[in-house]
Nucleic acid binder design. Structure first.
Length: 667
RNA sequence: GCCACUGUAGCUCAGCAGGUAGAGCAGCUGAUUCGUAAUCAGCAGGUCGGGGGUUCAAAUCCCUCCAGUGGCUCCA
């Protein structure tokens, strides 16, 4: 049905075309959406927007948000709804009210269903700005919105006693909204501004039919089982100890295996692209961070301490200054460039209490960090290379998991938030880079004038080079203003976790400023000193965060090369233990991680108990295997196949070497 | 940091109209020698997140601190 068009004459009501259909949320004329309740303003061709389509589902959920506000204001007349948009998985509404308890939320949901059952028409009305202001006199959020965004007139939607200021469109009546579920309650501030009113945000979801709602809820439950915190304790990967190490996760042996595999894979990729590896201290004197600019901006988020003799130190929140020290320790010629310095550098950031969580937001994490010092002319070439490694890495480890690329740019209205060169309006002198908020009033170093304007040349050039590199690698990306680092624009790669939350992994950042604040240089072809440009890059980003994405996307069933337990050997009875030990030794000798369960239990029980560790293969050893020196392998899909020792080793090594994602041993 | 919820044995959870803790799994001991998701029996294991209060009596009610979870803010 989608795509089918209907011809409509002027004055005809759209609803008349779809009288008996409950799967049409609105109609679309080209790209313009109309409510079903509207009449055509001219002769036109329209297509129905089905509730099952992406666009239709959005409308349905937007209407469900209204229904939520409707229910809340009926139950709590003093509640003031602010705004309630649809989201990717449902909707929410921000409302000023007492935070509801679980029981109250259940009540609200019940009320919503009651209203849905009544099939109350949702009617659009047009009003002048003055009328709107009068209508929403008691709702200061809507009032503010009307004053800011309405020019002459706009629309409201009325369902029974509830009226909402809204552009729409909406479903024709509340009966479309029977399949809803409130999911959780959170707190937020009006317009996300911490200084504005505190609001309650109620999240929910809506679907066109009960089956898809049930499916969604079941999927959410399944996803929760993939949560890395759950998998991590089942598989004995990490240890969280909230008492003694808040936000400081520990790797248990199985977790350390995965971490080390990731590191050695990246070490190999680094080497292929001529990155050298260094190791730098985990702390520096505070002067280092003052010079780099981190102290001014991130002092409150750093682990700082002062010793008895008055010396102050900070744990490193980034690796770049250490790499800079290594770069500057030697003279450089344009012939050595790019100088590529890498490190699996552990950094420490004091994330605020409410912000820490699991391995995705710890206070300590390790970055597969790298800094390329390049001449301005070779920036784009270097970035293209890095992008290529990123794509290869993500494809190899995460398979077809979707990664999105963002280009984060400066907010031109807030030059004071960034390191920025300023030009004197009086004498025209270009002054060195500063962050205006950190340094107080700006004065020209030549004439002392305070009449300075930001000069965006460096920022614009860096942004363009990133754009070009992305385009030339045929990577689809979105641009975001105001998301840049304080020292330069960047490309970020995001991946979603099991609960649908998006996390930043890889990053490429161009930095014109740190090299100059540290006075870095190289000798160019003309024999003159030139300042290099620094490219900060991390392919995994945080190793722990990347590990989480891999772990959750495979539900713990990691590719063989990453699996902590590659072979779980299970003996049928004690008399097979001797061969079990031998087999383990043989596998170990070839670098295959094998564990033996020689306990005096049934095969079934030993298999059952081993599954929590998600071993890649289970090798069962009984009379037949012992007599003929064989092993019977069972893979994660319960396929079985018997091998000679030699064949088993060869096949497993092949799967490991090729870093295969799918299991092929028992095919 | 803000709002809500949560914190009982290694793990998963029960107990919460207040009467000083209970199960399954794991662990240990013994029996069972067994072919692909739990063989049987016994034993041991907790100052109920910390502190304070109300009470004759607190895991249970109140306050406070800490931590975890969800969301907001932030994320170099």
């Amino acid at each position: 049905m989608p795509g089918k068009t209907f011809a409509v004459n002027r004055g005809q009501k759209f609803a008349d075309l779809f009288k008996d259909r409950k799967d049409v949320a609105a109609v679309m004329e080209g790209k313009i959406l109309h409510d079903l309740g509207d009449a055509a303003e001219h002769n036109m061709e329209i297509t129905p927007v089905l509730t099952t389509s992406e666009e239709g589902l959005k409308i349905l959920r937007h209407s469900a948000a209204h229904l939520l506000a409707n229910a809340v204001t009926e139950l709590y007349p003093s509640a003031i709804p602010s705004s309630g948009p649809p989201t990717e998985e449902g909707f929410y509404y921000d409302i000023e009210m007492q935070p509801p308890s679980e029981n109250e939320v259940e009540n609200i949901e019940k009320k919503m269903k009651e209203i849905a059952e009544k099939s109350i028409p949702i009617v659009k009305e047009k009003h002048s700005k003055a009328e709107l202001e009068k209508m929403f006199l008691r709702n200061r959020f809507k009032l503010e919105n009307i004053r800011e965004s309405v020019e002459k007139e706009s629309t409201v939607y009325r369902q029974g006693p509830y009226v909402d200021f809204c552009r729409g469109p909406h479903v024709p009546d509340t009966s479309y909204l029977k399949n809803i579920k409130l999911l959780n309650v959170a707190s937020t501030n009006y317009k996300g501004d911490i200084n504005r009113e505190r609001l309650v945000r109620i999240y929910g979801t809506a679907f066109p039919d009960s089956k898809s709602l049930k499916q969604y809820l079941a999927m959410r439950e399944e996803a929760a089982k993939r949560d890395h915190r759950k998998l991590g304790s089942e598989m004995e990967l990490f240890v969280f100890n909230s008492e003694r190490a808040p936000g400081l996760p520990l790797y248990a042996p199985n977790g350390a295996i995965i971490r080390n595999e990731l590191i050695s894979f990246m070490r190999k990729l680094n080497d292929e692209d001529d990155w050298t590896e260094v190791s730098t201290p985990h702390l520096f004197r505070d002067v280092m961070w003052k010079q780099s600019g981190h102290y001014a901006k991130y002092k409150d988020d750093m682990f700082l301490f002062t010793l008895a003799d008055g010396d102050s130190y900070a744990l490193k929140p980034m690796n770049c200054p250490g790499h800079i020290m290594i770069y500057e320790s030697q003279p450089h010629s344009y012939r050595d460039l790019p100088v590529r310095i890498s490190e699996f550098g552990t950094v420490y950031r004091y994330e605020k209490s409410g912000e820490v969580g699991g391995l995705t937001r710890p206070r300590i994490f390790t970055v597969d960090d790298g800094h390329a010092f390049v001449a301005a002319s070779s920036i784009d070439r270097e970035i293209k290379k890095i992008l290529a490694v990123m794509e290869k890495t993500y494809k190899t480890i995460l398979g077809d998991v979707q990664a999105t690329y963002d280009l984060s740019l400066i907010d031109r209205n807030k030059p004071e938030s960034y390191l920025m060169e300023y030009r004197c309006r009086k004498c025209g002198t270009l002054n060195e880079a500063k962050r205006a908020t950190a340094t107080g009033p700006l004065t020209c170093r030549e004439c002392g004038s305070e009449d300075m304007e930001p000069d965006f040349t460096l920022w614009d050039s860096a942004s363009n080079q990133l754009r070009i590199a992305l385009d030339e690698n045929n990577i689809r990306y979105k641009e975001y203003e105001g998301e840049a680092a304080f020292y330069g624009p960047k490309i970020d790669v995001h991946v979603k976790d099991a609960l649908g939350r998006s996390w930043q992994l890889a990053t490429i950042q161009i930095d014109f400023f740190m090299p100059s604040s540290f006075g870095l240089s190289f000798m160019n072809a003309e024999g003159k000193k030139e300042t290099p440009i620094m490219i900060h890059r991390a392919v995994y980003g945080s190793i722990e965060r990347f590990l989480v994405m891999a772990l959750e996307s495979y539900g713990g069933k990691l590719p063989l090369w990453l699996s902590p337990i590659q072979a779980q050997i299970i003996t049928v009875s004690e008399k097979h233990n001797e061969y079990g030990h031998e087999l383990r030794k043989i596998l170990k000798k070839h670098g295959i991680r094998a564990t033996l369960d020689s306990s005096f239990e049934t095969v079934s029980k030993k298999i059952k108990l081993s599954l929590r560790y998600r071993p890649a293969y289970i090798l069962v050893i009984g009379d037949n295997e012992v007599q003929n020196r064989l092993a019977t392998a069972r893979d994660r899909s319960n396929r079985q196949k018997t091998f000679s020792e030699k064949e088993l080793v060869e096949k497993m090594l092949e799967e490991i070497r090729e870093r295969r994602i799918d299991q092929g041993l028992c095919l």
